[in-house]
């Protein structure tokens, strides 16, 4: 084994030291505090009715929280730049995945409205006035098993509600 050691084709000056950054405990405590505050914030905001702004606000807060975790708890702020590159690169590819797929779904719907080449299941049901077959109602065999098992229990107690939902469900399943 040679005396000199190399990394990435370059001589390493102090091979027996590991380069590391040790954050002060205070940093971690502040970050934790900020994370709790932000969690409380989203929790509180969820009770306010922000309408269409609710999703962007929630995502913004989540992104800030995530950045704190990544930057401080995961040390990416002080780490090898290449690890940061890996992380951000991943986000870019996730963006590509989301961007194209969601763009297709958006623009596909626009075309649908024009040409009516596709209809969503739900639209179908809306147009025919029949409620969709939900879950177990899609599967006659499983539904029969369920009713055999829970028949007495639910037949009496929730008769009215279950009857309404179930009835419509059967209608949907048969169509």
């Amino acid at each position: 084994m040679s005396d000199k050691v190399f990394l990435n084709g370059k001589v390493v000056e102090h091979p027996h030291e590991i380069h590391h950054h040790v954050s002060p405990v205070r940093h971690y405590q502040v970050v934790l505090g900020a994370l709790f505050v932000l969690t409380g914030l989203t929790y509180a905001v969820s009770f306010a009715s922000l309408g269409p702004a609710s999703l962007p606000v929630a995502m913004l807060v989540a992104t800030i929280k995530a950045s704190l975790v990544v930057g401080y708890f995961m040390h990416l702020k002080y780490d090898d730049r290449y690890n940061l590159f890996v992380f951000l690169g991943t986000l870019i590819f996730i963006g590509i995945f989301f961007g194209f797929t969601l763009f297709d779904l958006e623009s596909r719907d626009a075309l649908n409205d024009d040409q009516r080449t596709f209809t969503r299941v739900e639209e179908d049901f809306n147009n025919t006035g029949v409620k969709p077959a939900v879950g177990i109602s899609n599967d006659p065999q499983r539904l029969a098993e369920f009713e055999a098992k829970h028949g007495g229990e639910h037949g009496a107690g929730h008769g009215a509600e279950a009857g309404a939902g179930g009835e419509a469900g059967h209608g949907g399943a048969e169509h």
């Binding site: 879950g135 177990i136 499983r142 279950a162």
Partner: peptide, 14 residues
């Protein structure tokens, strides 16, 4: 429950 095991509408949750 997920998918075809969903029975909430039979439990009275509409």
């Amino acid at each position: 429950l997920p998918g075809k095991f969903y029975t909430a509408h039979l439990h009275g949750y509409d």
